[in-house]
């Protein structure tokens, strides 16, 4: 089996596992599965409870429930939130765009600046400026994103009054949204840069000791030329997948940043559903986030095989 196919198979298996897990969790956890499926906010009478139970198929044998569950997933039916009185899929759809608005620019900035700065830091290890850089990003790396957001919010919005304190927009104009988004994106970018920085730095530290780097020096390449002509691409290679795998972690960081900045995205959706024990929303969000992470991994693999000739030819 070719590696690409193997990879695809693993992604599919992971997806399968997650959906199954989502099926099993509410049915195996302590408490009534009905409550676990509807959320603790749904107050039901005895009669309507049993009616719902049969409507949702909870009285059917497990394997039939399982098949039914798959059917509903495939038709993008993630259940109904009794707390928010809306179907979970439409809730997620409406919230997701705000999260993407935060995550996409920050993740791109993180990937670009993180790898370049990290590459330079690994290349010039021990030199003054790079030491300062490394120390700075190490501090950010060690700080939970929500605390970083709190600090930024306190400093820039509370003390200096440069940015609004909360929310996504007040008037809805482009500039207004940008003004609201600036600080969260900055924090999120810093967070994502710090992770990619550390990974890339380590990778370059390994690559610069390789024989081809020494040979490039013997050919007469000088200083950063060796990094950018030779080591950068090679160092990037192993970490494309690492960055993709880290995507899940960084994405969870976005959720926390949203909570602190009171943005109306996925993070707050999950947080609110947690507080009100709105299980369908919680599970639906988890499913969607996981699918996104797995897709990002697949994309990274495609990218990987585009850069590495060795994979292309296998």
């Amino acid at each position: 089996m070719s590696p690409a196919k193997k990879r695809l198979l693993r992604c599919i298996l992971a997806l399968f596992l997650i959906v199954s897990l989502n099926f099993i969790i509410p049915r195996s956890m302590p408490g009534d599965p009905l409550t676990n499926l509807l959320g603790e906010d749904a107050y039901l009478t005895e009669g309507s409870a049993s009616e719902l139970r049969s409507l949702m198929g909870l009285d059917l044998p497990l394997h039939e429930q399982y098949l039914a569950y798959w059917r509903s997933i495939l038709s993008f039916d993630l259940g109904y939130s009794y707390h928010l009185h809306s179907s979970v899929s439409s809730l997620i759809l409406s919230r997701m765009k705000w999260t993407l608005l935060l995550a996409v620019p920050s993740l791109s900035a993180g990937a670009i600046f993180g790898t370049i700065l990290g590459g330079l830091a690994g290349w010039k290890r021990g030199c003054g400026m790079e030491r300062v850089n490394t120390a700075f990003f190490l501090m950010i790396y060690c700080t939970p994103p929500y605390f970083l957001s709190l600090l930024a919010l306190y400093l820039f919005s509370f003390r200096l009054g440069l940015f609004p304190l909360k929310g996504l927009y007040s008037t809805g104009s482009f500039l207004d949204i940008a003004h609201h988004l600036m600080l969260p994106i900055l924090v999120m970018s810093l967070f994502s840069v710090s992770r990619n920085f550390m990974i890339m730095r380590g990778s370059v530290l390994v690559e610069r000791r390789s024989l081809y780097a020494a040979y490039a020096r013997a050919k007469g390449l000088y200083g950063n030329e060796i990094l950018f002509r030779h080591c950068f691409k090679n160092a990037l290679l192993p970490i494309i997948t690492i960055i993709a795998l880290d995507f899940g972690f960084i994405f969870s960081g976005a959720l926390f940043i949203e909570i602190v900045f009171s943005m109306n995205g996925m993070g707050n959706l999950i947080y609110d559903s947690l507080l009100s024990r709105d299980y369908p929303v919680l599970q639906g969000s988890f499913l969607i986030v996981t699918i996104m992470v797995i897709l990002a991994n697949l994309l990274a693999d495609l990218q990987y095989s585009r850069i590495d000739p060795r994979v292309r030819w296998q």
Binding site: L245, F249, S252, T290
Partner: peptide, 9 residues
């Protein structure tokens, strides 16, 4: 590939 923090949540 499974995002750990959401799963733990």
């Amino acid at each position: 590939m499974i995002p750990q923090i959401p799963l733990i949540i």
